[in-house]
Design a protein around this nucleic acid. Structure first.
Lengths: 256, 256
DNA sequence: CCAGGATTAGAGGTCAGACCACAAGTATAC
DNA sequence: GTATACTTGTGGTCTGACCTCTAATCCTGG
């Protein structure tokens, strides 16, 4: 019984769609912000059912590569690179991620990011950073506004680092941490000190002093960490969290 | 305004499903490795169509939270935490990630991971690491086998760090780098030196010397980076937006 | 002429049920 | 006793009709 099927037309439609779109992106046919054809039409083009096409698009959307707008169309993501928003959150529920672990990851990544920004930052980055610092000082009385510029500052540092992958990683973690941050900022009374630290970080980056930038960022984040009670708890002991005043000691900042 | 809507029965079915399953995971009803009910039955339970349920499950599968096995069932992921496999790869195509950037991220993360492992590693981790080092020395003549133990060693370091988030990040990057690695290992002639370095790293971790571990890991990775020609290229013009070149060919060693 | 509401066109979202493909276990033939 | 064939359970795909949302357009009253 001869196999009349030399090729493999099945290969899971989902991946077929994913790879097709991936190809369109890689060869430049599709660029960030572009709109893809309507589902019915696109499905006909690819010779598959609309349902399968939707599965594939859903897959891409879940990873943040595509953005679907009901009633309007489906587009290629264009904002700052970021992994699936719910991703970290979901995995947190699954693998028991702790807040302090997220913060620890953030500290490590962002400290290095600051160092890289100091090494590679361009004039434009410096200018943008300076502006955000100014805005922070100008909004010391408005927690909500202050937080916005705080976030912007950190995002700019990411961009200035010149490594979009690390930036995407940080962006993902930060967004997962955002809710908790907003709550604490409200009752934070040391915004002045915070702004001051940002200014120091900015100066270090501008002066192209990687080690200083790294150290200052590390210091700044540890302070924020403490303010939000996200230190690493002492060895696995007690159960529920009450107030803890345990000084947690993490990895020392070592200079290369 | 007669249209008071106390509840919101629509809220996009997809998210309905995602949140439902998320809840089951958070309250412990569903644990890693568990099998969820068959689609037809589950759909009936949730009062939605099978198609919608599948969309939701697809979303979770795309992020690596669920694992689907055709003809068998759908399960909650159980392996080491990892973000969507294709995630980084897709985003790379979209935002023009470069190999050297991935490697840079890896170096930064893994160096710290080594330091953390030195601080927090338990006896069991030390034993497992020792074994992998031994295996590496035993497979110096078999590139393929050597690579396996190399990977295992690094994964163990991640686990020993006690921070599953950082481990997941590294796992994601590493898997994206895997293909290229395999190619170069083949013609690498300095496996002995490599094994030696792993041994040094192991010793530093066991001796609980974070700074040494970090330094050694950093050194080891930079060497690997050089061996694979993934260093950061000299200054070059870069536009932040989506300028299209042809990133098809990266700095990586040519595919044989 | 100019709001501002009603209509309409286009796109994604959902549904239903039939049928296909794959993996395992079970029964049957030898 | 082993190998093949059948049965069952589960995910994968297709069809095509209908629902909902958005935005552009038209139409009406001022």
């Amino acid at each position: 019984m001869p196999r009349m099927k030399p090729e493999e037309p099945n290969t899971h439609r989902t991946m077929h769609v994913v790879n097709h779109i991936r190809g369109l992106i890689e060869n430049g046919t599709l660029q960030p912000g572009d709109k893809i054809p309507p589902e019915r039409e696109f499905a006909r083009t690819l010779k598959i059912s609309r349902a399968s096409l939707r599965t594939g698009i859903g897959y891409l959307a879940a990873m943040g590569v595509m953005k679907i707008r009901h009633g309007v169309g489906t587009f290629v993501a264009d904002g700052p690179p970021e992994f699936g928003k719910a991703s970290l959150s979901l995995m947190g529920a699954l693998h028991g991620f702790q807040s302090w672990q997220m913060f620890e990851a953030r500290i490590i990544l962002e400290s290095h990011l600051a160092a890289l920004a100091a090494e590679r930052g361009k004039e434009e980055h410096h200018a943008a950073l300076a502006e955000e610092v100014a805005e922070m000082f100008a909004t010391l009385d408005s927690p909500a506004d202050y937080l916005i510029h705080d976030l912007l500052f950190h995002r700019l540092v990411s961009q200035a680092s010149g490594n979009p992958i690390l930036a995407a990683l940080i962006e993902t973690i930060t967004s997962a941490l955002y809710d908790k941050r907003r709550k604490t900022v409200e009752r934070s009374t040391d915004r002045r000190e915070s702004a001051e630290m940002h200014r120091e970080i900015y100066k270090a980056i501008r002066a192209r002093k990687p080690l200083d930038a790294r150290k200052l960022m590390d210091q700044h984040l540890r302070m924020a960490q403490a303010a939000q009670g996200m230190e690493r708890p002492a060895e696995r002991r007690g159960s529920a969290a009450g107030q803890r005043h345990k000084p947690a000691r993490l990895t020392a900042v070592a200079s290369d």
